[in-house]
């Protein structure tokens, strides 16, 4: 890299990352951890306040044994002491506890990690499918504003935005699996799917959940892009561009679309981050052994450490997505000054 280029990048970096921005970002990160800590504390206390229940039908001897296990686990200590132990283990050993119900003796973090792949895959595929379609439909509807094409798209958008994804999920299963017998009903197991989540066979079993997740995403994106682009198309600079001799298509693609994408891109970044969270209901319906399903099971079974691990995970993802989206505005559109008063 020659000096001139280096100088250019340094200048650009300084321009982007001025002191105010750095302070703002650090402040946001600090606040994020504080919020995470507060949520963690609340969840921990609330979940431990729930009465510990013996399995129904446990004999007196069994209850005694279980009681001894709880004692050994420190469940009978004061809640704040338990929380202190919990935090200490996280900080000193990166130990988020152990599963005692869902996968006995397995570290809670392992349980979560082992279930990330199917969740992320299904959701990434869904986004890769939805984003181009959503943007294309949004652009098309904006260009054809108030024409019949726009009306139809708008009606469909309203329909798909209003209907929850699990309804599509059931419809997908009914038609694509049961009626037309085209696709598998649920996600294949690793054994049936060829031993990996990346086989073609496995992919075929992901199509129905991907579709079920995508309809709402496509509709949301279409509506957003249409609204942004419609506004941009009617702005003064578009008129100027046309009067300067640009064709409608040229003006739209060179100027309007770029500007319209400013609010869309952060939305997509947020979507990309939130896919880690997955969709609990979709995972249940399509038997996807992902983090969403794990979260539900951990609540049902009162597997405290797994529940806490998932809560921390979801909270962190949500908070991080918020920060990244906020900061990204400043990078995407220099007119937006991040952290300046």
């Amino acid at each position: 890299m020659n000096n001139a280029l280096l100088h250019y990048y340094l200048l650009r970096y300084r321009k982007i990352m001025d002191k105010a921005k750095v302070i703002y970002i650090l402040k946001r990160i600090g606040l994020m951890f504080m919020t995470l800590f507060i949520i963690m504390t609340m969840c921990f206390i609330l979940v431990r306040l729930l009465p510990m229940s013996m399995p129904e039908g446990a004999s007196a001897q069994q209850q005694e044994t279980i009681q001894r296990r709880w004692e050994a686990l420190g469940y009978n200590k004061p809640i704040l002491v338990q929380y202190g132990i919990y935090l200490k283990n996280i900080i000193t050993r990166w130990d988020f506890g152990t599963s005692w119900k869902l996968k006995v003796l397995e570290p809670a973090s392992n349980l979560l990690l082992s279930r990330l792949a199917p969740t992320v895959l299904v959701n990434v595929y869904s986004l890769l499918f939805s984003i181009p379609i959503g943007i294309l439909l949004g652009v098309y509807a904006a260009i054809r504003k108030n024409k019949w094409q726009d009306q139809i798209i708008s009606i469909l958008v309203m329909l798909f935005v209003s209907i929850p994804s699990y309804i599509y999920a059931f419809l997908m299963q009914y038609f694509l699996y049961y009626k037309w017998q085209l696709l598998p009903q649920v996600l294949y197991s690793l054994e049936d799917g060829g031993g990996s989540y990346f086989t073609f066979k496995m992919f075929t079993s992901m199509i129905t959940p991907i579709l079920a997740l995508s309809f709402g995403e496509i509709a949301g994106l279409t509506r957003f892009v249409r609204a942004e682009l419609t506004e941009t198309l009617t702005s003064d600079y578009m008129l100027l561009a046309r009067t300067k001799g640009l064709s409608r298509r040229q003006a739209t693609y060179r100027h309007a679309l770029r500007n319209a994408m400013v609010p869309v891109l952060p939305m997509l970044i947020g979507d990309f981050l939130s896919i880690l969270g997955g969709s609990m209901i979709i995972e249940q319906i399509f038997s996807i052994p992902g983090v969403g399903q794990l979260y539900l099971y951990s609540i049902q079974q009162r597997d405290f450490d797994v529940f806490m691990m998932e809560t921390i995970f979801y909270t962190f993802i949500g908070l991080a997505a918020g920060i990244i989206v906020d900061i990204s505005y400043g990078f995407i559109d220099p007119r937006i000054r991040v952290g300046e008063r």
Binding site: L102, K103, V104, L105, L111, S114, R115, L187, S189, L190, E191, D192, S287, P289, Q293, L294, Y297
Partner: peptide, 24 residues
């Protein structure tokens, strides 16, 4: 606790187990 650590003396043996998904 997994197919790998399971040993049988009954008529069937475990060939695969995927947590939350399937046992064969």
């Amino acid at each position: 606790t997994s197919a790998e650590t399971t040993i049988s003396y009954g008529p069937y043996k475990m060939v695969s187990y995927q947590d939350g998904k399937q046992a064969k």
